[in-house]
């Protein structure tokens, strides 16, 4: 029970982060190695926003939830204009360019924000303990053991992630923006011929991807803490998810995020977190060997 709840929280954050990575790759064919740093930037900016505003945690948190993803998205869009556009979205060179961005963002954060981990207070955080039924000496009874609990904030994270996901789904499938993005994804040259401003779309998409990572980070920062090295783990996990799910396939990303998050939660709780990482990495290797396009990816025709 605790295992699946922990897994659900991990999945929730993972699905947002991986979704950003997946959209960017799907539309732009750019492997964004700096994605984890946009995540970190989201967490750090959340700290900045909440501490500068002060006041009640709810107020600061809601402000961060709105401002930070937009801000990170703008930074990412700017980086796209400034860097990725100049290398013509060449797959090899964008990887090197985003590695460079990774270090620039990380070191800039270290120089300004500093090396400390700083906490952001959760807007609400009550411990909800769950009962457990067992046959004891006095027959069937309900006990409240230690450990069997979740906080209201963690539940909120799960629901918030689902809400964002649904919103994203609607935007992509039901609106004109989504249509333009999908057109660019299928054939950017033809899309351009039909009057789609491909350059602008790329900037928007890159910003959107980074914004999603930042959103995930704002949600997670009251559970963890903001730290300049925190981008590494989410990047790795997001890559694992995207590879298993199929690069560019959004439903695949969701399924893989659930798979990895839940298995990580359950295996960590019953065995050890290290084993969970080993299994996730092993899964990637297996997927690459037997189904290189990913679970739901389309094979190149």
């Amino acid at each position: 029970m605790l295992a699946s709840l922990e897994g659900a929280v991990i999945s929730a954050i993972l699905v947002l982060t991986a979704m950003g990575l997946s959209i960017v790759f799907g539309v732009m064919r750019v492997v964004n190695v700096a994605h984890g740093e946009f995540f970190m930037l989201g967490a750090v900016l959340a700290w900045v926003v909440t501490t500068t505003l002060g006041g009640h945690p709810v107020f600061g948190f809601v402000a961060a939830l709105i401002v930070v993803p937009v801000l990170v998205g703008c930074i990412a869009a700017g980086a796209d204009r400034l860097i990725l556009k100049r290398v013509n979205y060449d797959p090899d060179r964008t990887i090197v360019a985003t590695i460079g961005m990774l270090y620039i963002i990380q070191q800039a954060t270290l120089m300004t924000y500093g090396p400390e981990a700083r906490p952001v207070e959760a807007p609400f955080n009550t411990r909800l303990s769950l009962p457990w039924f067992e046959f004891g000496d006095e027959g069937f009874q309900m006990i409240w053991p230690w450990g069997l609990s979740i906080t209201s904030y963690k539940l909120f994270v799960i629901f918030a992630a689902i809400a964002v996901l649904i919103a994203l789904w609607i935007v992509l499938t039901r609106t004109k923006i989504g249509l333009i993005m999908r057109a660019t994804q299928q054939d950017s040259d033809t899309a351009q011929a039909f009057g789609v401003p491909v350059g602008k779309v790329y900037s928007w998409v890159f910003g959107l991807g980074a914004g999603l990572a930042a959103l995930g980070a704002v949600l997670v920062v009251p559970i963890q803490q903001a730290h300049y090295l925190m981008g590494g783990d989410p990047l790795l996990l997001a890559f694992i998810v995207v590879i298993i799910g199929g690069l560019g396939s959004l439903p695949g990303t969701v399924i893989a995020a659930l798979l990895i998050g839940m298995s990580d939660g359950i295996i960590s709780v019953f065995f050890s977190p290290t084993l969970a990482k080993i299994i996730a990495t092993f899964l990637v290797a297996m997927v690459l060997v037997f189904r290189p396009q990913g679970l739901l990816g389309r094979a190149p025709s």
Binding site: L2, P115, P145, Q224, Q225, M230, G265, V269, P273
Partner: peptide
């Protein structure tokens, strides 16, 4: 950075938790 998943390995018979942790995420 996150620790809850390590704690279920604490046996029920435990009388004392002895903890020592370092790193940025101690809080």
């Amino acid at each position: 950075t996150t620790f809850t998943r390590y704690f279920p390995n604490i046996p029920r018979e435990t009388e004392v938790i002895y903890h020592v942790m370092v790193g940025p995420a101690v809080l």
